[in-house]
């Protein structure tokens, strides 16, 4: 009899595990069946592979000077032409995607952590709410990437400083989104039930509230990723991003701006790469939003 009961609990446990796995599987399957998510995902994978395999696929070294081919137009040897120092634009773009990807990932992770922390604190600790939200409102009063430009200018041009500047710029809206969804979940009955059952604050926050308030955050973070790729390019273009001669998509475009009369290819190609990468992330974000949060219409809450 005891063995029977034990096997019962075992099988219930297995049932629950199986059900969870099925739910995860349907989620993945629904995502991959969503055409715009799929297209965006493929673009992101290609972008990531380009960055990871830069050493293998770049035809030349990104900083290799070649004075015999200065400002050479696109050709069989140099697909995307060469710049004012005879450097191969394609190779520079390929290596430049590394900077974009690295900065994008760091900014997404840090914005996610800080945004969750601040958003949860604001909604969970009542006396902190006003202080946190007013400070975030203040930070959001700086339009667009202007704050990031000023911060990066003050801290000095480097990759780390670009990451810090962009995180400070994108965290407020993310925190706001987290706060809003945490407040909704907080008011639900199962949270009350969890309290009644004697669950501790940590358990309630992580296991019940955050787990159920995650969807808007995930959607937001795909857009943060897209915006940070553009913002990094803006910082580099203005000369406050990661410094040359190491290539980044933004500083290649800046090189192209100075040679705009004689060499259109230097500026055009890196921008196309940014546009395609951002398009991919936007498609992914739209797909995720459709599936995670069907009521929500597109184009709201952009950072």
């Amino acid at each position: 009899m005891t063995t029977e009961a034990a096997s019962d609990t075992l099988s219930i446990g297995r049932e629950i595990r199986l059900a969870r796995r099925r739910r995860r599987l349907t989620f993945v399957r629904r995502l991959l069946a969503h055409p715009s998510f799929l297209v965006g995902f493929v673009i992101l994978v290609l972008f990531t592979l380009t960055a990871l395999l830069a050493d293998v696929i770049a035809p030349y070294a990104p900083t290799e000077l070649n004075y015999r081919f200065i400002l050479a137009p696109p050709s069989k040897e140099f697909w995307f032409g060469t710049d004012a120092y005879g450097r191969d634009v394609l190779s520079r773009i390929i290596y430049g995607t590394r900077v974009s990807l690295r900065i994008g990932i760091y900014v997404v992770v840090m914005t996610g952590i800080l945004g969750t922390l601040l958003g949860t604190l604001a909604s969970y600790v009542k006396w902190l709410d006003g202080l946190i939200m007013r400070s975030l409102d203040g930070l959001m009063a700086f339009p667009g990437v202007l704050l990031a430009i000023a911060l990066a200018a003050a801290l000095g041009p480097s990759e780390t400083n670009a990451i810090i500047a962009l995180t400070v710029t994108f965290t407020p809206r993310t925190a706001r989104i987290v706060r809003a969804s945490v407040i909704v979940v907080q008011g639900m009955q199962f949270i009350e039930a969890a309290y009644a059952a004697g669950a501790g604050h940590a358990r309630i926050i992580f296991r019940y509230i955050l787990a159920n308030a995650l969807s808007p955050l995930i959607v937001q973070l795909t857009f943060v990723f897209a915006v940070s790729i553009v913002a990094e390019a803006i910082l580099s273009f203005l000369g406050v991003g990661p410094p040359p001669p190491a290539p980044s998509l933004g500083n290649i475009i800046a090189d192209g701006r100075s040679n705009i009369q004689e060499a259109w290819w230097i500026a055009v190609f890196p921008g196309l790469v940014i546009a395609v990468a951002v398009l991919g992330l936007n498609l992914m974000g739209d797909g995720l939003r459709d599936i995670l949060d069907p009521r929500h219409s597109s184009a709201r809450d952009r950072p």
């Binding site: 897209a226 553009v230 390019a233 803006i234 273009f237 475009i253 192209g256 701006r257 705009i260 009369q261 259109w264 500026a267 055009v268 890196p270 921008g271 940014i274 546009a275 395609v276 951002v278 398009l279 936007n282 498609l283 739209d286 184009a299």
Partner: peptide, 29 residues
């Protein structure tokens, strides 16, 4: 709309300059 909002504006500005300023010469660079 989606393509529009994925284009980095500062880069698009440079493309416009190349197109209308340098190649066609219709507008100042």
């Amino acid at each position: 709309a989606l393509v529009g909002l994925s284009i980095p504006d500062f880069w698009f500005g440079i493309v416009m300059i190349i197109l209308f300023g340098v190649w066609l010469g219709w507008l100042p660079t």
